[in-house]
Design a protein around this nucleic acid. Structure first.
Lengths: 197, 197
DNA sequence: CCCTCACTTGACTGAACGGTCAAGCAGGGC
DNA sequence: GCCCTGCTTGACCGTTCAGTCAAGTGAGGG
């Protein structure tokens, strides 16, 4: 299978990083887990940072998949957000079963770890977070158009609120080792989508 | 000055860690910055993990100070939360000026980094987060008693909501390199403290 | 005056780290 | 049959890491 090695390396690296952190996972760890020699890895990636960037992209690709499924317009817009939360929690629960720890949001973790670095990587992180916010904003906007939430609500501000809330809950879930904590986002949604007073 | 060295080591370590992460800061870095030799550091701390634990305690002590000041009962309970947000953002802004990066929440960062480890450290993190939540819960409870928020609001659930929101905003602030993002918590507060619907 | 003990010094260790490289290998095109 | 090219191999390098240790130093107490 050509082109298989690179993908396997990134996939394995993502899993290891998701269960710990970028800095906690060494190149040797990745090679061992992927059944690949170091020179081979460095054939595809010029540096550990480059591998880290690839892991970030894979995480975003996986999150995009969950987002695209959840935000399909076969249900009401606010139901889509609920559906996404379910998918997100399912992701956490699955990793918890495999790794015996609650991993937190893969993108949130990388943001926390990499945002302090200067360079393109932070710009990319911001872009990803913005793209993520847009999923929420679009659904909120549509719900507002249908009269399901107050017309005075700013969809973008509300979407940022939802993302921040999700990230915070994911962090608490990681600390408490309980993915279900994130489920409370569904209860909090009506509150988060109500107008400021 | 007796007992000074240990404190200086922890203080310096905290600053370095706050600007990056525990794993990104080496024992040598700390020694260099504190003007101390390695054997001296290991006289006080049996391991890097022990130093990390001390850094966590110092961060909580500093946060406690900000919390105690903000939550003094010389103003209305909801005003205290606003005051805490101001203090928190001031903390971020100060570090940003010194380090040229927005550091995020010191406790949130450590939570993200250490929660995956098994052992006492996660238990301690959870306890700290609970103690933090209690500050919010007490103020919310008092505000409810004064009729400033709806009686159907559960102070503990609302407090957790506020903490999650704060952590999420701190993460976004770090990503966007803009401490002021956290200020929007003050606008979001009425929303977060309104009853579920 | 000297002993004790908390603290400091600075050189040291062994392992792990990210990264390099010359040599090989296999398959596809000429 | 040959070479080119994409990929693999496994040994190797220099650095940095957390952690150790034997030998000091100096102040306070008896």
């Amino acid at each position: 299978m050509p082109g298989d090695t690179r993908e396997r390396i990134v996939a394995v690296a993502r899993d290891l990083v998701h269960g710990a952190s970028l800095s906690a996972v060494s190149i040797d760890d990745v090679c061992r887990a992927a059944g690949v020699h170091k020179g081979s890895l460095y054939h595809f990636f010029p540096s550990k940072d480059a591998l880290g960037a690839a892991v970030l992209e894979l995480n975003w690709a996986m999150m995009s998949t969950v987002l695209d499924e959840a935000f399909a317009d076969d249900v009401a817009p606010l139901t889509r957000i609920d559906r996404f939360v379910d998918g997100f929690v399912r992701m956490l629960t699955l990793t918890r079963r495999q790794m015996d720890i609650t991993p937190g949001c893969p993108l949130g973790n990388l943001t926390a770890e990499l945002a302090a670095r200067q360079g393109d990587i932070r710009a990319r992180l911001v872009r990803i977070l913005q793209a993520w916010t847009r999923y929420f904003a679009d659904a909120i906007s549509e719900a507002r158009g249908r009269g399901e939430i107050e017309p005075t609500v700013d969809p973008n501000a509300a979407a940022t609120r939802v993302l921040a809330h999700l990230q915070g809950l994911a962090l608490l879930a990681k600390a408490h080792d309980d993915p279900d904590l994130v489920l409370s986002l569904k209860d909090d949604l009506p509150v988060l989508l109500s107008p400021a007073r």
